[in-house]
Simulated scan of single mutants.
Amino acid sequence: MSPSPSPGRASGSVVPWLGAVAVLQFVHLAAVATSLQDAHRLSLVGDVAGWTVGLLAVLGTLAAALSFAPGDYLRRVWGLLTVGAGLSLLSTALRSYWMHAVPDVPFVASPLLPVRMVVVVLANVSTTFALVMLARTYQQSGLQPPSSPRATLLWAVAAVSALVVGGPALVTAMGHLGKDFASTCTAVIGLASTLADMTTILLVAPILRVAYMLRGGRLAWVWWAMGVSGAVWLFYDAREWLGMVLPGNPTETVELLRTLRTSGLAMLGLAGWLQRSALAVTQRESHAGAAVSPS
């Protein structure tokens, strides 16, 4: 039987992928930084970045879903993540189409706005439900780490972070409900996104705990990638008030922080590819073990 991959080899195989995500983030950040004085160019940069990471998220989650057998619980989990990523990409496509087809009319005045509202709500529901299912899966399988003061503190930090980041956004969005049709649609989009991201931030705690418990193995990198993705959304959602406290022009700072969406979606796609890779390695080792076992 061939030896199991060592933690070092597993880490080494992940490093290039993490580097690729870092490069994507840097390129997007640099492109935005050099486009802050040109609104049209800034929109184009966001459009290209949205398509790029959106496709990566869809392909990664789809690869993970297809690596499991039909009817497998985790196939449904990754399938829901694929649906969420696909709907998110559709949301990008709607904005992209309008930006190129009717460049002189803002998207909030577009008849596609209510369509995008429905798409965004469904995307957030799918992704959030999938993450909850994922957390429940590993809890039921016995991978739930034991309770400890450190774990309680991590939960508390996640809960406070979710409230601090999402609370003001929820209040603001609710204040726009009923003002007019466009404002209501935009508010619903904001509410759905904020509630989903708050749930994701809460789930960062159990995800990172499982990742730490599995440290050294290939499957741990799936959880680390998911955890980092959730943590990135924390800063993405906090961009408005971070823009006010960080040095520099608040508007420009918000635009720079908006690029974190690239890392959030790219890490989700990477988690999917890592899940597929980890499962493939496990299956190969299982087949190799069966081949050398005495009959």
Rank of each mutant, 00 (worst) to 15 (best):
Ala225Asp: 02
Val132Gln: 11
Ser4Ile: 05
His100Cys: 01
Gly248Phe: 09
Gly175Cys: 04
Leu131Phe: 15
Ser263Thr: 14
Ile207Glu: 04
Ala65Cys: 07
Gly248Met: 08
Ala225His: 01
Ser43Phe: 03
Pro149Gln: 12
Gln139Gly: 13
Ser161Tyr: 00
Leu234Arg: 06
Trp233Tyr: 15
Ser126Leu: 06
Thr194Pro: 03
Arg95Tyr: 10
Ala65Tyr: 06
Phe181Asp: 15
Leu257Ile: 02
Thr128Phe: 15
Thr52Tyr: 02
Trp241Leu: 13
Tyr138Ala: 04
Trp224Gln: 01
Thr61Glu: 03
Leu81Pro: 03
Leu66Pro: 00
Gly12Thr: 10
Arg150Lys: 14
Thr253Ala: 13
Tyr138Thr: 03
Ser67Gln: 12
His28Trp: 13
Gly216Pro: 08
Glu252Pro: 01
Ser295Arg: 10
Gln283His: 15
Met1Asn: 09
Ala158Ser: 14
Trp51Ile: 12
Val132Met: 14
Val164Glu: 04
Val292Ser: 11
Leu66Ile: 02
Gly54Asn: 09
Gly46Met: 01
Ala69Met: 02
Leu87His: 06
Ala266Gln: 06
Leu112Ser: 11
Ser161Ile: 00
Leu242Val: 11
Ser293Tyr: 10
Trp51Gln: 08
Ala291Phe: 04
Gln139Ser: 15
Leu113Ala: 13
Leu112Trp: 12
Ile201His: 04
Leu131Lys: 03
Gly84Val: 03
Leu270Met: 08
Val53Glu: 09
Arg116Gly: 15
Val23Asp: 05
Leu81Ala: 09
Thr92Leu: 01
Ser293Glu: 14
Arg95Phe: 09
Leu113Ile: 14
Gln37Asp: 15
Ala192Ser: 14
Ile201Asp: 05
Trp233Glu: 05
Ala156Gly: 11
